[in-house]
Each structure stands twice: as structure tokens, then as C-alpha cells.
Nucleic acid binder design. Structure first.
Lengths: 206, 206
DNA sequence: GCACATCTGAATCGATCGGTACGGAAGGGG
DNA sequence: CCCCTTCCGTACCGATCGATTCAGATGTGC
């Protein structure tokens, strides 16, 4: 009852866990991704994970914790393009990689269409408010990281000194969010790639 | 039991309704807008509407019908900027009015932040799937109408003949959807107006 | 005033919600 | 081997879900 909600086990004594927590989390992530926090019931989740309620609670804590861990996995998995984009050498390449990555991630065959960080919980009632707030923070952190990267680009002379890094970051995040919504609406990868290309046409000249 | 789900009453006999259906629908719209279809419980809705469950069912049918009627009201109310934008004389003015309107509508003081057509139901489980599909259709219809408007602009010589009207329409809808998500994330009207202005910089020259 | 259609409110429906308690099964350390 | 810890499946918890039923109140048309 103390800290059993940790995914990692603290000792090797006792019967070992009978399922792969990483794979179970992957399955849970996809359910949240597809149905959202409030739309995903415990029955949906445990069914997809292939385990019982009890095992889920022992391994992950509760539904909210499971959602947060699924978000972490999403960040390091399908959304890892964001991290990679940050490491591109120029601001323009960062922007291009970021939008291309968002197109790619939101239209991956075999994965739900759209972005976990958007449709996981955009609006919610009381019980799902904490999940919604977690995603709001997640999106805003992404914007902030982009902003910091563009500030660096300004300092390095890669962008004009009168550039507004916040605007650039918010612009990119806005387009990426829109791409996610469009992907959830059935837009294809090709169509969204064209949109991303067009969005980059308003990027400040290198 | 036949068609009592109509908002309009078919006869004047009997006890008249004790509440204003339009105002009740307005209140319901805001609840769906703020909490989404699945996040809005009957208790939330009827509480905000100031009526009982029974009155709601008698006047609107059921939760799903109420949602559809709320969407109609949203279309003709807060989202009426889309219709108005279509009637602008040039394609560029259409695009400008559309994005400006979306910024304005998603950040209206006294209204929930964001767009009903996006956060009303972006992802959902089985029970909310029909609401989700209704909003998908709603967004795609908006794109289609923009596309038709830009096709007309091409025919009129307002846009170059090699323009892809679908791409322009999808681009605008993508940016508007992104603006909605950003508004739901706490972005201010000024910030989003800057984003909209920047998005229009990639518009084909007049 | 009468008869009737409709509205209203409370009580209730079965189903499902997220979350738990319990007991048997199963594996590791001595 | 035994003990002990942990896992796992079932059955169940109170609360809430959307939806309905029913009696009583209320207003309209005759």
C-alpha cells in the first residue's frame, strides 16, 4: 500500500509478474490514444492489456496513473520526433522536422489516427479533469521547448534578432495540433504532408 | 413516443412548456462545449439547463439528439463566422475572415475556450462514437465548403488556375483546428491572432 | 366547470463506472 | 522441502451512468 504503484518491482522475492508491463502499457496507450481518457473504461483497458483489473492496479496504481505512464511512453515512443527535431542544426530544419514528424506520427498505419496528446483528453468533466490538465501541460511544455530552441537560434544568428521565438513556437504547435485533429478526422498522410509543407512557407527566410 | 423528440411542439393543447427551449439548448451547448459529449453527464446538463431529466427527454429526445441540436445551435451561433467568411469577395479575404473568426470564437470571454466542433468529441469510446462521427462530418463539411468557395475563386480568376483548392481548404481548417486546441490549452486571443496572421503569410499572392 | 393533454418531479430501472477484498495458485529463497 | 511473498481471478463494493415509469400538478379548449 506504500508505493506499489511503481512499475518497477522493488524486490525479487515472491511470485514474479506474469505479464510484460511494457507491452501492457503499450496496449493501454493505444486504447487511451484511440478512445480518450474518459472514453476508455477499465474493461476496455484491461481487455486490451490482457490482464485483470487487480493486476493493473497492482502494477500501475489506478486509471489516472496508468494514463500518465501511457503519456510518458507516448512521449518517448511515437512522439519522440519532437526531441529529435530539436537537435536539428537550423531553426528551419527544426520546424520542418517537427511538422513532418507530427504528420508521420498522427497517420501511422497500425496506430490510432491523431495525437495522444490532443485527443487523449481535450475536454472533460470533473473526473477526467486531471488527465486533461496533464495534456495541457504536456502540450505547453512542447511549445516551451520549441521556444527555447528558437531563442538559441536567435542567439546563434540562425534567426534574425527581431524574431519572436514564442510566436514561432506557438505557430508550429498550432499547426501540429491542427494536423492531429485533421488526422483524427480522416485526412491522409499525403494530404497532411502538403499542409505541413504549406505551413512552412511562412517561415522566416534562412 | 412517436416524434416527441422534436423541439417544436405540434399542438397548442395541453399544458404549455414551462421553460424556454432555446435558452435551455444554449446552456446545454455550453456544457458540451466545455466538457465534451462523454464528459457531460445528464446531471450536468439538466442542472445547467435548469430543468429535470424528464423535461429534457420530452423536449429533445435523448442525450445524443440534444448534442446534435446543440451542434446546430453552435453552427448558427458562435460558428457563424464560417458562413460569413464564405461571402467575402476574394479568396484571401475569405481565408482571413475564417481564421480571424476562429480566433475570435475560440477565445470569447464568457464562453468556453476552444471549439465545440473539436473538443465536443474528438476521441470516444463506444457510447460516444456517434457524437464523434457527427463532429468529424461537421469539420469535413466545413472543409468541403471552403474548397467549393476556392474553386469558385479559381473560376473567377481570383486565384491562379493551377491552385489546389482542396489543399487551401484543408490548410485553413487545419490551422483553425490547431487554434481551437491552443485556445483550449490556455492561449490568449492576442497570441492566437498572431498565429493566424502568420499562417496567412503562406497564402498564395492575390 | 369539466375533460383531457401535457408538463413536472421524484423514484427507480438495469448497466456500467472506477476501485477493492478475499482466497487460492504459483514461484523464489532458505 | 517449507515458508512466505506476490500474483491472479472472482466476486463484490458504492456511485453514477443514461433512460424510464408513474402519480400528481397545471394549464388549455370546450
Amino acid at each position: 500500500m506504500i508505493d506499489r504503484m511503481e512499475t518497477r518491482r522493488k524486490s525479487s522475492i515472491g511470485r514474479p509478474r506474469g505479464f510484460d508491463t511494457e507491452e501492457a502499457l503499450e496496449r493501454a496507450m493505444r486504447v487511451f490514444w484511440e478512445q480518450g481518457y474518459e472514453g476508455a473504461s477499465l474493461a476496455d483497458l484491461t481487455n486490451a492489456m490482457g490482464i485483470t483489473r487487480t493486476s493493473m492496479y497492482a502494477a500501475f496504481g489506478n486509471k489516472e496513473d496508468l494514463f500518465r505512464k501511457a503519456l510518458e511512453r507516448y512521449t518517448e515512443g511515437p512522439a519522440s520526433y519532437a526531441d529529435r527535431a530539436q537537435r536539428e542544426p537550423t531553426a528551419r530544419q527544426v520546424a520542418t522536422a517537427f511538422l513532418n514528424g507530427s504528420v508521420w506520427a498522427t497517420t501511422r498505419p497500425g496506430c490510432p489516427a491523431g495525437c495522444f496528446g490532443v485527443q487523449g483528453s481535450l475536454a472533460a468533466g470533473d473526473p477526467g479533469r486531471s488527465a486533461r490538465d496533464a495534456l495541457i501541460a504536456w502540450r505547453n511544455e512542447g511549445t516551451l521547448r520549441l521556444c527555447g530552441r528558437f531563442q538559441r537560434a536567435i542567439d546563434e544568428g540562425d534567426l534574425p534578432p527581431d524574431t519572436d521565438p514564442e510566436l514561432l513556437a506557438r505557430y508550429l504547435m498550432t499547426v501540429a495540433n491542427g494536423i492531429a485533429v485533421q488526422a483524427a478526422s480522416g485526412a491522409t498522410r499525403d494530404e497532411l504532408q502538403q499542409v505541413a509543407d504549406m505551413a512552412l512557407r511562412s517561415w522566416p527566410p534562412a
